[in-house]
Design a protein around this nucleic acid. Structure first.
Lengths: 155, 155
DNA sequence: CGCAAGTTGTTAACGTGTCAACCAGATGGG
DNA sequence: CCCATCTGGTTGACACGTTAACAACTTGCG
């Protein structure tokens, strides 16, 4: 085993800063949505995809968009269906599958939640970064995802 | 209610990039640690704080460092204690409380995990960003945390 | 066609996080 | 000193994610 290259001060600081931001941000977003709209961030993302799609989505497509495990999606949809936010409809062309449709209540909720959500995002991130920082953020995110993708398959 | 200022393309791209990075990174870090060391990221952070501290930490101090709910910490410590990674010791100066000590096994595990963890961090983040990007990341993280702190109390 | 292999989705079991209620010991004002 | 209040920590009920096994259907190759 080769020598370990520990992080220097700058690197450590950047990493800690990233991790702390990550935790705080996730917690904040989820709390705001729950508190004001009764939606978890997960609920929000499901409804956002469904309402953007206009047509009902096949469950596996939704799963791909969300990058969720199929069992997670299945159970989450069951809970959301019980709450009346979505509806499962048998798929006509494939007897195994379902189309997931957003209900009127679901539409109402996401349309109420979206503006507040955007406001929150502006409030804690977007509006307080410079143009250069926003671009850096995009670039960093893209690079990291590229590295993750490079790691994943060859694991 | 005032007009909603939706995100423009740049802003949306930055936000999505951040969210995607966040999800992917958290998942990757946790998977690597579990797979190679049998530690969750949560386990790792507990052990990291304990091993840095040299002395056993009071549970509430550990909770403050981790920013964890006390019940989460309590249950997590119970599980880690069962696995022999930490040990609860009655606090002498306060009969309500406990000091949390890392065990020999815990020390062994974290010392094996740390180099790999650093390597992972380099592999997917630190080593592939420019110096400017690292600085931007630090600055962005700090700004966002400042905004979060500003939101939290006045909620 | 007929069957093996792949795809779509559900379920059960388990680990983990949150919330609220609770207990016990510490603390401080009367 | 005594009681109200605060603090440190645990517990139980519930929400949620992961894994593995499974059922039902589709696809494609011989």
């Amino acid at each position: 085993m080769t020598e370990v290259r520990w992080l220097d001060d700058r690197e450590e600081q950047a990493w800690r800063s990233l991790m702390a931001m990550q935790e705080g941000l996730a917690e904040f977003i989820d709390r705001q949505l729950r508190h004001r709209c009764g939606l978890s961030h997960a609920d929000y993302q499901v409804l956002a995809h469904l309402s953007e799609a206009a047509e009902p989505l096949r469950a596996f497509e939704l799963g791909r968009l969300l990058r969720w495990e199929k069992s997670r999606l299945s159970q989450h949809l069951t809970r959301m269906e019980k709450r009346g936010l979505v509806r499962r409809e048998r798929c006509e062309t494939d007897q195994r599958g379902w189309s997931i449709a957003i209900t009127a209540e679901g539409t109402e909720l996401i349309e109420a939640a979206a503006p507040q959500h955007v406001t929150d995002i502006r409030e804690v991130v977007v509006d307080h970064l410079t143009k250069a920082e926003l671009e850096a953020l995009t670039a960093i995110g893209d690079k990291v995802r590229a590295r993750l993708a490079a790691q994943d398959p060859e694991r």
